[in-house]
Design a protein around this nucleic acid. Structure first.
Length: 227
DNA sequence: CGTCGGATAATCT
DNA sequence: GATTATCCGACGA
């Protein structure tokens, strides 16, 4: 048998995402996110996610209505909403609920289950300074997709993937159900807490993660900047 | 292990 | 002009 990425696994049905984000989010833990590029496939088992409830949620990008950036969130469920932030990072979401609403689940972290070498290459090749003599650090496996921007870098997700369909079997970006009997397996205790890095809505426990998973990112409260 | 400052630019007010 | 759904390296314990 091939130990690589299971191509035969079907993507999650669109109905799966036709629910409020706080309901979809915990259900996504343990599911498999894969991105196929000319370089190869990298796949992770999701270990940490966050729910954003659109216009009713002060922490959501859709809190102040539709804009060019968040337009995908107002579309049908099961599509990828990718945004650029902090001048250098990308984060990826899955859109929830029907068109006209703007719920989404932010995919925050995962455990690499396929394409580990490729993921490590992408995550290590950072500094592009010509004279940089800094030795390349060898990242532990748990660090490859530990955090939303790191996950995107390991899977090579950027602007080009905004709007792709997670439910299309032919899509290079796929989201499929938990592999039966594989990986972490049994211990599926889910924990919940406040979302990371948000200034508003920090009182809502819409961050969900797999308990005792080393790939879950560290919590850090939002910090206001002093000019 | 933990906390902290700086990087860096799209997006929105 | 201010803010940002973050990361990394530095430094202290």
């Amino acid at each position: 048998m091939d130990k690589g990425f299971p191509d035969a696994v079907e993507p999650l049905p669109r109905d799966f995402f036709d629910r409020p984000a706080p309901e979809v989010a915990p259900a996504l833990l343990g599911c498999v996110l894969a991105h196929e590029t000319p370089e190869g496939v990298v796949a992770v088992e999701l270990t940490e996610v966050e729910a954003y409830a659109g216009e009713l949620d002060p922490a959501s990008h859709a809190y102040r209505g539709k804009t060019p950036r968040n337009a995908v969130m107002y579309g049908p469920p099961g599509y990828a909403y990718v945004y650029f932030t902090y001048g250098m990072h990308f984060c990826v979401n899955v859109v929830c609920l029907p068109a006209g609403t703007a719920n989404a689940v932010l995919l925050r972290a995962g455990r690499v289950i396929a394409g580990e070498d490729l993921a490590r290459r992408r995550r290590s090749a950072r500094r592009l300074v010509p004279d940089d003599q800094t030795p390349l650090r060898v990242l532990p496996a748990r660090e490859l997709a530990r955090g939303p921007a790191r996950l995107c870098q390991a899977l090579a997700i950027d602007r080009a993937q905004n709007g792709l369909d997670f439910c299309d079997p032919a899509s290079p970006l796929r989201l499929s159900g938990a592999a039966s009997g594989a990986g972490t397996g049994a211990s599926r205790t889910i924990s919940a807490g406040p979302r990371v890095g948000v200034s508003a809505g920090a009182d809502t426990n819409w961050r969900f993660w797999v308990a005792d998973e080393p790939t879950v990112s560290a919590y850090r409260p939002h910090k206001a900047r002093s000019r």
